[in-house]
Design a binder for these strands. Structure first.
Lengths: 220, 220, 220, 220
DNA sequence: TATGAATGAGCCTTCATTCAT
DNA sequence: CATGAATGAAGGCTCATTCAT
């Protein structure tokens, strides 16, 4: 979230303002992500987001028409907008479907689970029911594409004769469960009892996925 | 929260009012539990709690000096205050330690997991970090005694030579993990995607505990 | 709008609070009428209304859920709520229909035109188009009943063979026109050019009505 | 407000920009008139005026130092600035004074009453009291010259022995009254009850003026 | 003991005006 | 000249808590 060294900001003062203009949404999004993750949706004040981005309250509303829109932009920026890329990566995967499941889970941890983006998941689980419009947005932009992505992965295994899945939906939830657990652990238990040594996430995922695959793979 | 048969409420009208007085806190506590679980801590209005308990806002503050104190009383009434009883039950358990672990987890589901009390866990995970005083209270009154209880159970297995546990804390977390998962599933995933068929909790617990015991029990 | 001498406020301090409670809505309505008439709807701040009624901002919202509702209550209190009474008075009028028209217009001046209630008319003409919900409310609660009332008066003349009216609606507008003019004169012209001697309203009404009746009455 | 054919805008590109520059105020004034009339003074946002004129908000403030100044310029452009011309026309009128009164009223309808300029009158009646500086400006630049103009017309009748007027001011108001009524009708009643068939303005004026002249003309 | 009227700090959002580029 | 990013004061509304009755 820091502002890295940027030669433009030194050499060409003329470009400063326009650069700023381009950078603003990103700075606001970044500040908003920080604060939403730290305090949740309801408890985050737009004025504080603006202050952290180094602008006034009014400026924030220049870029986002409402607090809700700001949150949605944060969700898009950090999760929803990336499904296209992830789906594409899926097509090019060379290995077995079991390897693909492992790969996908590890990727999730690296790109979402261990980043602040995971905090968004926590927010939606915590406050979603209180903000129906946000919940609907999240359902459409994150949950639905996410489920579709996992279903595609499992379908690949089915199509190649690698998996045997009596219930595809159930299998999807089995993959989601450890992700949810890790997120809640990180943001809730770890936040409550910071003294405790946390679960080591990667081995945890490895173990869980192995267990699941044991039940999903076709026995030969 | 149920109102058990009380002879006083029949025999003498003078005792009625005092009965009422004694019942007040319980009615408030019950209403508060309902609403806290439904809306979370911050989004629950004390006025609504009072209204649901059939009293005025002022009366609530007669029994509980603040919203925070009300929540703490709810926590005590539903979870914290029961550890003494649970610890006592533990002493009398006749079977093996493996059976005790199974028993304890089933009991948790019946007395907490499947009741509204589980909602308190969800609230603390969702909003705990925002209300440090509440988090500290919960840590002292629930988490610490809960861990101690689980540790006692496992220690029993160690003392009797039934378990082999290189890391007691880690084993405790392994038992907590499925409980947290079930709670979050119930209050977040199930709340978001109500169409989905839920996990069957008792078999899920059974399976998880068996898996854990497999690694904890002394091989003979 | 002043608080007249009230023996209750001296002799029985116990009754003070409850009296206050009953008086509040009236005091707020009165303060609101003053300010709405003085500044218009948009420019009136609820906080100022509350202050003028001697209470805090929050108290106002105890009695009226929104600024809009407050305004509607003012309209009902001062105009809309009185049509029942006015309609009843109409039934008992003993004289000719021409006399009734004169009487109705004089009554309007005394009960609306010369009171602050006329300011509401000015507000609706000035700001109605900007607040569609208010305009709709006013249309239903004031304009429609008002037109109906005038139509009943004219219909009485038709039924008794006193009037000859090719177009009833047109005749209604002819009666409304001088009322509107007087209101605008009072609140706008007179407000702009206070130095000018105002029109004398009663003679003006008399003249206008005579002119209209000249065209409406059946020649014999 | 229309943009008439202008050869400069075709022949030379260098002149284009300067033409543009000269046209700017007019385009802004035109956009401002539209929006002020549509929404009133307070509810019109300068940004929207600028947008409708096709320039940026900053540019508007280059030509008009404030919203108030913009409104004043609109008033001058559409009403105040034309009194010189109207006064001149008056001197050349060949007919009787009664004809002149009729002529003046018809001219008012054609040049003000039926154009958007009448909206300015409505604005001043609606919002004048809220913006004292605007009201003072309007008083000086429109009301005073307007009254003077009407007074000159009536004075002509007196000087020529055509009229008999015990009270000149009162006669002036008699002429203003129907204009005000028509404006309010157009912008308020017609806006509220669009279904109603409107008054036909020219015959209305004719009738009113005839009535007034009846009382003003010297009987022979 | 019980009531509920009253409070006031706090939050999201708007918009005229400024000024660096 | 022209731009449009930035400001910040202001306003409608909420709600935990107090206190006179």
């Amino acid at each position: 979230m820091s502002t890295p060294f940027d030669p433009l900001s030194i050499c060409c003062p003329t470009a400063r303002r326009s650069r700023r203009k381009e950078a603003r949404p990103g700075e606001l999004l970044s500040a908003a992500l920080d604060l939403f993750v730290e305090k949740g949706y309801a408890a985050t004040r737009v004025e504080e987001v603006a202050a952290r981005a180094g602008v006034s309250k009014g400026t924030l509303f220049l870029y986002f028409p409402s607090k809700e829109a700001l949150f949605q932009a944060v969700v898009r920026d950090n999760i929803a907008g990336r499904f296209a890329e992830w789906n594409a990566e899926l097509d090019d995967f060379p290995g077995t479907s079991a390897e693909l499941v492992h790969h996908a889970m590890r990727q999730w941890w690296e790109r979402i689970g261990q980043t602040q983006a995971a905090g968004i998941t926590k927010i939606m689980m915590s406050e979603g029911p209180l903000f129906p419009e946000l919940a609907a947005f999240y359902q459409n932009e994150v949950i639905a594409p996410g489920h579709a992505l996992l279903r595609r992965i499992l379908q690949r295994g089915l199509d190649r004769g690698e998996f045997h899945l009596p219930n595809l939906d159930w299998a999807v939830y089995s993959l989601i469960a450890p992700m949810i657990f890790l997120v809640m652990w990180r943001y809730s238990m770890a936040a409550c009892c910071p003294s405790e040594r946390a679960i080591d996430p990667l081995p945890f995922i490895e173990t869980q996925v192995n267990l699941l695959l044991m039940g999903m793979q076709v026995r030969r």
